[in-house]
């Protein structure tokens, strides 16, 4: 079971709700993924369009727990204010905290992230910070009472997979008891499998499913890939080695002659 802030989940996939070809395809993909947590945002509502109301009806029909984000915030102050709005709107203390440093990389602005996380935790929020693989930032976030960390695999929407495997392995090893959710940069089901095999607790993704030719089928693929990765992690992976090692028994090989041994 995946446990985040005292809540347990069977699925280790957290799914975003943006960029689908249609609201119906989002709903079907979310169902097919088995996700029990979906991410949402908040935006200014127009009295003419009332765009948010129809979307909310869809989300309610899914019956998933919602994880609101602070996407688009550039400073701790903006993120804190947005988190307050999200708590009022969605009635949850959970917040996917994003403080973005750069429009091209959409990389987390770690100083603002730590500042906002500390302030929000003091106010009773349960913060899930979108961070990098940086170890010292992780330490600061945990010191700021974040009980879950969400390091990126690669920049948002880049589909590049685990760019910095070594640092991610270190992060996993260094914080064995903190749930670590890989958030962003996952492009293929095999990326997700790899992360889960490495011992990461869950995957948060959006674009790879939403922009697939068939989002429902891709959602199923990710669900199975993550399940496979988790089974493999629990089973225990063999250690890689540089030299070959025969799997078929050597003893009793027919036509064997001692002089062939090098």
């Amino acid at each position: 079971m995946l446990t985040l802030y005292g809540k347990s989940f069977t699925s280790r996939l957290l799914l975003g709700t943006a960029q689908y070809p249609s609201p119906e395809s989002m709903k079907q993909a979310a169902k097919a993924s088995g996700a029990e947590i979906v991410t949402v945002s908040l935006r200014r509502e127009s009295a003419r369009a009332l765009a948010g109301q129809g979307f909310w009806t869809l989300i309610e029909e899914l019956g998933c727990r919602v994880l609101p984000n602070t996407a688009g915030c550039r400073t701790a102050k903006e993120a804190i204010a947005t988190a307050h709005m999200a708590r009022e709107l969605f009635g949850t203390n959970w917040i996917k905290l994003e403080v973005i440093a750069n429009d091209d990389t959409l990389q987390p602005e770690l100083f603002g992230l730590v500042e906002a996380a500390a302030a929000l935790a003091t106010e009773g929020f349960e913060v899930l910070p979108f961070t990098t693989e940086d170890l010292s930032a992780a330490e600061r976030l945990i010191a700021a009472r974040c009980a879950v960390l969400m390091p990126w695999a690669a920049p948002i929407g880049s589909a590049r997979g685990l760019i910095n495997r070594g640092a991610l392995r270190t992060l996993r090893a260094y914080f064995p008891d903190i749930p670590l959710v890989i958030d962003a940069g996952i492009g293929t089901p095999s990326h997700a499998t790899e992360a889960i095999e490495m011992g990461f607790d869950a995957i948060l993704l959006n674009t790879a499913v939403a922009k697939a030719g068939d989002p429902v089928k891709m959602a199923q693929a990710f669900a199975r890939a993550i399940e496979a990765g988790r089974l493999a992690f629990e089973a225990g992976l063999m250690e890689p080695r540089d030299m070959a090692s025969p799997s078929t028994p050597v003893a009793g090989t027919p036509f064997f002659k001692i002089e062939r041994v090098s």
């Binding site: 709700t17 960029q19 991410t39 945002s41 908040l42 935006r43 200014r44 979307f55 984000n69 996407a71």
Partner: peptide
Amino acid sequence: AVARSATQLAPADEVEIVAPRQGG
């Protein structure tokens, strides 16, 4: 929501009204 009826508006107030939206 419960405090909106007691919140008086004044000229030049900056009001934000937001709703749920798709997010990643």
